[in-house]
Write a protein that binds this DNA or RNA. Structure first.
Length: 483
DNA sequence: TTTTGAGTTGTTCGA
DNA sequence: GTCGAACAACTCAAA
């Protein structure tokens, strides 16, 4: 060990102090700790944080910074390139060790590998940790030693391993250096939009580690018991709403896992206990997404199934724009797209419906949808986004069979039976009786008149006919198989 | 190596 | 209105 024993902790997608292996490792050395964040979007390539993510990141950094301040510490914020920034901070502070928790996005893995070897050959001690997954993605293999491509088998294999370790507490003591290195303010990174479009997001979310913990607590003591069926209802608050916290690492999956497990063990067998298992399985899907991202990194841009490379995706810009703005004429689809635009989030059930509509009814390339989600979701996560879109499009791992095409009318009636979700996000339809709320174009003229709605004016007519679009999608698949 | 069973979230059609 | 089968064929995972 060198004379300095000062450590740099490089914060990335782990903007928390509890259950933070890298921070704990640095604290354990007993010497000064320099917490660092580096803004380097150019190193993320095409998948640099979108507008909604940057908005969230701004607040998350403020929150982390305040938490560190209250411990007598400082968050040292710099701009990239990351390697140069770390080298500079090490030189300024005399730090001899650098710790971080791993990320798994392909561009980041390449970058971090290079940074690690360069720092090591410069004489620094460098160590990385798993702070983002329940099971390290690279260790899960099938009996042939290959990565799984089917969820059930993957998850069975994970569950046969020792249970994820319990979360570690935040370090009780962190030592500050004698002098702090120069740093930028969060504001200087320019993450916030120049025009304030984020009012709806601001109202919908509280940001930071404390808020993440409160949301977890609220979910575990409340909605989790009804998760099995409640999670499918966009008109109710039945989902966990933990996704953005998990993405930015304000919450670790281990914290969520053990919090739910503790509650589950208190319960008699039955619906509530099944609901807990159902939620844990959803955490499993997140694990599967990271597993696929690590083993099939090309899938962020290309279909996993080769035969889909030839699929005749259309490039209908008008249709894409109508979808993005929530003007397709299908109420559930439009409600979802507007919820997304307003709050930076969309209910999971509705994500499937809108994605299926874009890819199958409109035949637009799934990558256009993935890009829109990437820019507008506060929980945009490369692993989850890639898996989700390829699943819907039918070109990914364990994908929905292509002939499985969501019917937006039936989905609406089934999962938003009272029409409350539609009325909330498409208020121009609010006066429609529930019977017609999911298919306004079928509404008798007299009913439309009473409700004061003129189709094609106040609310658009459907941009495609469901039955026609469905047949077209099936035909496109058949054709691409022959060709 | 070959075989066998299985595979998140649906829809439509005909009885 | 309800029910079961068909929808296509393929690939994965394990025996």
């Amino acid at each position: 060990m060198s004379a300095s024993d000062t450590s740099i902790v490089w914060f990335r997608h782990d903007l928390r102090l509890a259950d933070h292996p890298a921070l704990v490792a640095a604290a354990k050395r007993g010497g000064p700790v320099i917490p660092v964040f580096i803004w380097a979007p150019e190193e993320e390539g095409k998948w640099a944080a979108g507008a909604a993510s940057r908005w969230w990141l701004h607040r998350s950094l403020k929150s982390l910074s305040e938490s560190l301040d209250s411990l007598g510490m400082r968050l040292t914020i710099r701009r990239g390139p990351s390697l140069a920034a770390i080298q500079a901070i090490a030189a300024e502070t005399g730090a001899d060790a650098v710790y971080w928790n791993r990320r798994y996005e392909p561009a980041i893995v390449l970058r971090d590998t290079k940074i690690k070897s360069t720092l090591k050959s410069g004489g620094l001690h460098v160590e990385s940790f798993n702070g983002a997954c329940l099971f390290e993605p690279s260790i899960i293999k099938n009996k042939q030693g290959k990565p799984f491509q089917v969820f059930s088998a993957f998850w069975r294999s994970c569950l046969s391993l020792p249970e994820p370790t319990t979360p570690i507490r935040r370090p009780s003591k962190l030592v500050a250096p004698k002098t702090w290195p120069k740093r930028l303010t969060v504001e200087a990174l320019g993450l916030e939009p120049r025009v304030d479009w984020a009012g709806g997001i601001r109202e919908a979310w509280k940001i930071g580690e404390a808020a993440a913990g409160q949301q977890l607590k609220r979910f575990v003591s409340g909605g989790a018991a009804g998760y099995l069926t409640g999670r499918d209802r966009p008109d109710r608050a039945g989902t966990s709403r933990l996704s953005p916290y998990l993405h930015f690492g304000e919450l670790s999956p281990r914290q969520a896992w053990h919090s739910v497990r503790r509650r589950q063990s208190d319960m008699p067998p039955g619906d509530a206990e099944d609901s807990m298992a159902c939620f844990l399985r959803e955490l499993g899907w997140r694990e599967f997404a990271y597993h696929l991202l690590v083993h099939f990194p090309h899938t962020v841009n290309e279909p996993l199934r080769d035969q889909f490379r030839a699929f005749p995706w259309g490039h209908d810009d008008a249709a894409l724009a109508a979808w993005q703005r929530g003007q397709t004429g299908y109420p559930v689809v439009d409600a979802g797209m507007r919820e997304l635009w307003t709050t930076g989030w969309m209910h999971n059930r509705v994500r499937m419906v809108v994605a299926s509509f874009l890819v199958k009814h409109l035949l637009v390339d799934w990558r256009a949808g993935a890009a829109w989600f990437w820019d507008t979701l506060v929980d945009a996560d490369l692993a989850n986004n890639t898996l989700g879109w390829q699943w819907v499009a039918g070109c990914g791992a364990d994908a929905a069979p292509y002939f499985r095409i969501f019917n937006p009318i039936l989905q609406g009636r089934k999962f938003d039976p009272g029409g409350d979700y539609v009325r909330k996000w498409a208020p121009e339809l609010a006066a429609l009786p529930t019977k017609w709320i999911h298919a306004p174009w079928e509404t008798p003229p007299s009913v439309l008149e009473t409700a004061g709605i003129r189709l094609g004016r106040a609310y658009p007519k459907p941009i495609v006919d469901h039955a026609t679009a469905r047949k077209r999608a099936l035909a496109a698949l058949a054709e691409s198989r022959q060709g």
